[in-house]
Design a protein around this nucleic acid. Structure first.
Lengths: 186, 186
DNA sequence: CGCAATATATCAGGTGATAGATAGGCGATT
DNA sequence: AATCGCCTATCTATCACCTGATATATTGCG
């Protein structure tokens, strides 16, 4: 089976952007990655921000598809949160790169508004998901607060682990974080 | 009093780099910021990575000078950690930008090794400082773990708050984080 | 003088983006 | 069945501009 050009373009863009950020991706790089010419890349994504927005959209969809799949049979908050942590872990360890939105979020001030919005949509959905996963016995305000803190810790943990080139650092940080989520210490 | 050219260069570079990252700073931008020519910038910092390393060094020194100053009369772990949190907060709120090393750490994979090393030195010093600030009654291994998690949470919290354009988000995340530092719940 | 700091001028290469040509497939018309 | 027009996807060629970096000249001060 052959992979569509847009898929190969997004694959190449994701690989590069999750390592170097928005400016580390050029139309010429993507063209040579996919064996077409840079003008053909513009045919599929006229402007660079179009490409970035499409990439973030796909990233978000794939993230939540995997998350839903891995929590289909999960009832307890603890197993849902574990699936969430393992998905972040996989992004770091298996892909060997940061979360796309973690990197773009750091660069947010210099990004086109449409890209920034897409990144923030990912974060909002993350926080929303974790809030829902926390036990209903916990007040909603408290759940949102814990959710925000969890996402912040995981994003910061990925950044630290990748920057310091020590994947175990993420586990040390993230595993502790989940144990200390107030809802789970009943 | 006049400010030295290198100081003005580092000021301009810090402003730009803390918003857009490494690639968002160009010699020509810095030249026009400081009313000199780009070749004169090269006189002070021959290569871009020289400039970045010097900038990170200064950032680190100023950070720990301020930290020492603000904890000179602090004995309790709680007040030391509060000073640490408030310094991160100031970097975000007053400067209106991310931590220089938080941004560069995210871009680490695409940076020159010397710059990456300088960034990691900042993180290592951060973790070390927090480890020392935590109560001696706590085992060192546990202190290091809590310190890593705290730094990760603050870095991630800054990124989330700045990206989502909601400074209060950092307070919500960071205040909760410090309250949950295991050592302080005695 | 001699040195530190600036300037002029230029280089090779990369950047996002656009205009216009070409090829091939596919359905509709003849 | 053959042809035509259209559409998708690619190509070639080029634009103006920005990038880090260098060689060389000039300035001004102690």
């Amino acid at each position: 089976m052959t992979t569509s050009t847009t898929t190969r373009l997004l694959d190449a863009a994701e690989f590069r952007m999750r390592r170097g950020g928005y400016n580390a991706v050029s139309f010429r790089d993507l063209a040579s990655d996919t064996n077409i010419k840079s003008s053909s890349v513009h045919y599929h994504y006229p402007r660079k921000e179009d490409l970035a927005v499409a990439l973030i959209q796909r990233y978000r969809e794939q993230f939540f598809e995997a998350l839903d799949k891995n929590t289909r049979s999960a009832n307890e908050a603890e197993s849902k949160l574990r699936a969430f942590r393992l998905l972040y872990r996989k992004a770091l360890i298996k892909d060997g790169a940061l979360c796309l939105c973690g990197l773009l979020g750091a660069e947010a001030a210099g990004l086109p508004p449409s890209v920034r919005d897409a990144v923030n949509g990912f974060f909002a959905a993350n926080i929303e998901w974790v809030s829902e996963a926390l036990p209903a016995s916990m007040p909603m305000a408290e759940r949102r607060k814990a959710a925000r803190r969890l996402v912040a810790t995981y994003q910061g943990g990925m950044m630290l682990a990748k920057s310091m080139d020590d994947p175990k650092l993420f586990d040390a940080i993230a595993t502790t974080a989940i144990e200390q989520s107030p809802a789970l210490n009943r």
